[in-house]
Amino acid sequence: MPADSTATIVTKAIDQVITHREGDCTDPSCARHAGTTNCPPITVSRSPGSVLGEAVAEAWHAAGGSRLDIPAGVVAALALWPQKSPGAEAADTIAAYIAAQPPRVLVRGLADSADYYYRLRPDLWATARPLFDWTREDLHDTHLAGVRAVARAALRHGVLQHTGDTDPAERSRIDLMSWVITSLRHHHSRRSLGEYHTPPDISNLIATVLADEGSTERRPHRRGEWALEPTAGTGGLFRSAAQDLRRAGEDPAERGWVMLELDPLAAAGAAVNALVWGLGPRAFVGCGDVLAQPNLAEDTLARARDMARHRDDVMDLIRFAIATRTTDRLLDALMATN
């Protein structure tokens, strides 16, 4: 991670803790203080992925947007929204709250949703960054209108119903990132990249055949096994494999999953999916050309270890800086009373 990114994370974390502790935040884009609490309900339906993806693409292009990272990032941040509930029972309430927010507050909330995962999985967070870097830009009105339109379209078509369940098996019923990215690229000339993600039914069939190794009897899975997908796309094959394991009474988080993908946007989608689907602490995503980088899988694992150590160093620095600033203020207050 670049040094300026680390400094930004540290400074932002310290400032948020101090200002919200003291209640004097005046940031107009801060969802904690500037967001509306008047949240009328919105009509929500749990639409199929194809319908949701098409609705997102239509909303974005109707608003005049041309970039792919912004609308895909909106859906990714909503899919990652940290507040999950059994049976996604809180999804409608959360959807109404998000849909009611002013555009700049909405952008900040989406950024916070993604940043939440830095402490949990810094490597997946870094791989997913192409979907979220736009949240740090000074977006013009066209993009802000597009963000709001995309968020509302995704919410109305059930993005939180698909991804807001506490049960990872329920969150793994669909690969929303695949549907969204392919729909956006269809509107933006998908054929120019020659990218077609494997349909879910085919992924399910392939996963079943690979799991049974062609036998008529199901092969017992061995705990701790690793799986590698060198052309992962957004990870659809591993979604099917994980669901296959769950149906057999096994936890996919006990396995190792390595997804490699050439396209940064698809790799970012795979990183988001690894978190949404609960693939566990040994799920990794690498972005690169497996033909030109034969050691890409090993490099991806090494990078993840380095980023975990870096995350620990950053969090230690944040805790120290907060403690130091708090101590300084206490000393200033003590001196003022003497």
Rank of each mutant, 00 (worst) to 15 (best):
R129T: 10
H157I: 05
S172D: 05
R171F: 09
A151K: 03
L131Y: 02
A153D: 08
L205N: 12
Y196N: 04
F132C: 06
D201A: 13
L176N: 02
V209G: 02
H186F: 13
L144C: 07
A151W: 00
D141F: 13
R156E: 15
I174P: 00
T135E: 03
D141K: 10
A126H: 12
L120N: 12
S215I: 12
L193P: 01
A211S: 08
S215G: 09
D167N: 06
P130V: 03
S183R: 07
T216G: 10
T135S: 04
W134S: 06
V209S: 02
A169Q: 15
D123N: 07
I181E: 01
T142P: 15
P200L: 06
I174G: 00
D175V: 12
S172H: 06
L205T: 14
A153V: 06
D212K: 14
R156G: 14
L176M: 03
D123L: 07
A154H: 06
H162F: 00
R129A: 12
S192T: 11
D201Y: 12
I206F: 01
D175M: 07
L210V: 04
L193R: 07
T198D: 03
D165V: 06
D167V: 00
G146T: 01
R129W: 09
S178Q: 13
R136T: 09
P199N: 01
L124M: 02
R148Y: 08
